[in-house]
């Protein structure tokens, strides 16, 4: 464990909790893509199946359980409890265009052709694009609530910190996982445009709105 991975994990945790609290406190999931949240729940479920087969550390297990629990709670709030506030008309990204290619790629490019390993690979690839429905929704409505942008910022920060973590691990531990690294780079690139808007607008106290 290095400082970049730890702060990356905590940043990820912050993102998840910010979103859950925002929805819970405002009793509204307006502006949030339910599809992205379902994809993230699928990501955590397929990746953390190793909770049942191997124990790594108390930290590792605790974080996995919290991530899974929070992601399902978020999905529950969006599609069940606060369904009336869900903005489905603007959440029109076709997720099958993500799931099908990502599933195919996981079968073709993986470390080991075993069910658990393929599901893990699937989750890595899927995570790299799971935010697209949310970004698509923002581009469609042309704006995002500031709290939603904080959520996205922490999610992107987590990816950037993980990239530094992998450089660190490569130099000091000789460890690298090509699948995770390539997917992580793709995922981080997807946030770049958003980061730019976040720094130039949100941090200067303006609302994030896109030109028409």
């Amino acid at each position: 464990m290095n400082i970049f991975r730890l702060t990356g994990d905590l940043s990820h945790l912050a993102a998840i909790i910010i979103l859950l609290l925002k929805i819970w406190k405002s009793r509204s999931c307006a502006g949030i893509s339910g599809k992205s949240q379902v994809l993230f729940a699928l990501v955590f479920t397929t990746r953390y199946l190793d909770l049942l087969t191997s124990f790594i550390s108390l930290y590792n297990t605790t974080m996995k359980v919290i991530y899974i629990g929070c992601s399902y709670a978020t999905v529950y709030l969006i599609y069940m409890k606060l369904k009336a506030t869900y903005d489905g008309n603007h959440d029109t990204f076709r997720v099958e265009f993500l799931i099908v290619p990502v599933g195919g790629l996981a079968f073709l490019v993986n470390h080991d052709f075993s069910p658990l390993e393929i599901l893990w690979t699937f989750s890595i690839y899927l995570e790299s694009v799971a935010i697209l429905p949310q970004l698509f929704m923002i581009s469609k409505t042309g704006e995002a609530e500031t709290i939603t942008t904080h959520y996205l910022f922490f999610l992107g920060l987590y990816r950037a910190l993980y990239l530094i973590n992998w450089i660190w691990r490569f130099y000091f531990e000789g460890f690298f996982d090509m699948i995770a690294i390539v997917a992580g780079v793709v995922q981080t690139i997807l946030y770049c445009d958003f980061f730019y808007l976040y720094v130039t607008k949100v941090l200067k106290g303006k609302k994030l709105s896109l030109p028409a």
Binding site: D50, S54, S57, N60, M63, K64, H111, D112, W120
Partner: peptide
């Protein structure tokens, strides 16, 4: 033979 990397990351 493949060496499956340790899944210690989240």
């Amino acid at each position: 033979c493949h060496r499956t990397p340790a899944k210690d990351e989240l």
